[in-house]
């Protein structure tokens, strides 16, 4: 599903955010990406969604080399990825329902099928009763769950989460993590960047460890 081949990212000015990253995450797998802040976790996720472009190497997502993807193909790539951010990135002037529906509107779903899927996604994250409210009226944990519902509503094969529990207390964080595990169990490939080692300690998934832009612990190394 996801393969990095000697990927490097150098920002203008010469700073190397990532160097020589190689690993493979098979379809249906789940893994954590850890490291201190500034180690390059966010950059790595951004490369996958083509928010940033690699300076070197090949980055294969679902059989497509994102490193060479022309700009007009980027929307199609992003539709096959569910993205979850620490700061939710919800639209404040739209209801929870409309926020979650956005990927389906973009993909061209019609009203009835769209409503059915939005409600299924909200049900999964336990917010079915909040579909008419606006995001600001929700707690941080609830907003994060709306973000997750939006990321999974169009059933993408790959889910990327950047510090999804960054602002949440331990109980809420566990709830969120359990959600990701549940998605993985139905076949979604999941990659989660987090620095919360206590939270993921007991979870049986491989951990990629980044330090200063390099993978120092790599259980997913390409053989």
């Amino acid at each position: 599903m996801l393969r990095f081949e000697r990927v490097g990212k150098r920002y203008p000015g010469g700073r190397d955010a990532l160097s020589d990253i190689s690993f493979e995450l098979p379809a249906g797998a789940m893994a954590f990406l850890t490291g201190h802040s500034g180690a390059g976790k966010s950059t790595l996720l951004k490369l996958i969604a083509a928010i940033e472009r690699p300076s070197r190497g090949a980055l294969i997502v679902g059989g497509v080399n994102v490193a060479r993807l022309p700009a007009r193909r980027i929307p199609a790539l992003r539709r096959r990825i569910g993205l979850i951010f620490q700061d939710h990135q919800l639209l404040p002037d739209r209801t929870v329902f409309d926020n979650v529906a956005l990927p389906l509107v973009i993909a061209g779903y019609r009203r009835r099928e769209l409503a059915r899927r939005v409600r299924a996604a909200l049900d999964k994250v336990g917010l079915l009763d909040k579909e008419r409210v606006y995001p600001q009226t929700l707690s941080g944990g609830e907003q994060q769950r709306v973000g997750i519902a939006r990321a999974v509503v169009h059933r993408p094969p790959l889910l990327l989460a950047d510090e999804p529990t960054g602002n949440l207390d331990p109980d809420l964080s566990r709830d969120i993590m359990n959600l990701f595990c549940a998605f993985n169990q139905v076949g979604v490939t999941v990659l989660i960047a987090t620095h919360d080692l206590a939270l993921i300690e007991r979870l049986p998934y491989p951990r990629l460890v980044l330090r200063q832009g390099r993978l120092v612990d790599n259980p997913l190394a390409v053989s």
Binding site: A49, I51, R72, P75, A76, L77, R78, R79, I81, L83, Q89, L90, L91, D93, L102, P103, I106, A107, R150
Partner: peptide, 16 residues
């Protein structure tokens, strides 16, 4: 701008 950024992240085409 924020709305445009978010919809681009979710995979909206330029035409959309």
């Amino acid at each position: 701008a924020d709305e445009i950024r978010v919809t681009k992240l979710i995979g909206a085409t330029d035409a959309f």
